[in-house]
Design a protein around this nucleic acid. Structure first.
Lengths: 108, 108
DNA sequence: AATATTGTTCGTTATTTTGCGAACTACAAA
DNA sequence: TTTGTAGTTCGCAAAATAACGAACAATATT
């Protein structure tokens, strides 16, 4: 029975990335932003079968997680992948998956 | 406004991995299983400040996502990282993070 | 057969998440 | 200054998630 501090700061950040990516709509948005040239809210909304209020909410969550960033280009808003955090996420996940040694004593 | 099929099968699998990893307790469990020699339920439970029913539930979710597997070793249950899916997850995430081109027209 | 050990499942409660329409805000254009 | 465009925020409802204790199931041991 531990008290707390089960995870390091970095691991907690990883959890937040994972949680943000763990929804179909949000992964769709991330993939869209990674590829498309147009990153305006309206264009994102057009790709999705959900209300704009909901899209806005998902964008907020992605932003809070640090995976994207928004920029006002009045009267529009342009969203982008946050490259800095994207790279941090990349490293975090690849680091995680490397934590399983080839040979491990228990289990197969 | 799309209808459906927003994500490919592989991308949906990625969402499930991400969702499973997007909880502190579950990431803790994954890290524990990746490192420790003892993978019995009781040992996992001992690491966590939560009820065994809750631990069991989280293990079920990790198993449903495919990240771990359980094996009865009566009267105990031994849990392990599912290496096959672990590698699929590794590839899926690294593939995702590579989807952002270095140069992209919109955004910075 | 009875008991102990180890986890899982059930039923419930509290919280969080998802989703929507309506109202609102900010700025641009007329 | 009024109107239009583009998104965000609010308030709510429904669904999903997280957590627990109690009951249950499966097997080992006595």
């Amino acid at each position: 029975m531990q008290e707390k501090n089960i995870l390091t700061q970095k691991q907690e950040v990883l959890v937040r990335f994972a949680k943000a990516m763990g929804h179909p709509t949000r992964l769709t948005i991330l993939l869209f932003l990674a590829h498309q040239e147009s990153c305006y809210f309206g264009d994102i909304h057009d790709e999705l079968p959900i209300a704009k209020a909901t899209v806005s909410q998902h964008l907020k969550e992605l932003k809070d997680a640090g995976l994207i960033q928004g920029e006002i280009e009045a009267p529009k808003v342009k969203y982008c992948i946050n490259r800095e955090n994207w790279n941090i996420a990349k490293e975090s996940f690849s680091g995680l998956f490397l934590e399983l040694p080839e040979k491990k004593v228990c289990c197969k």
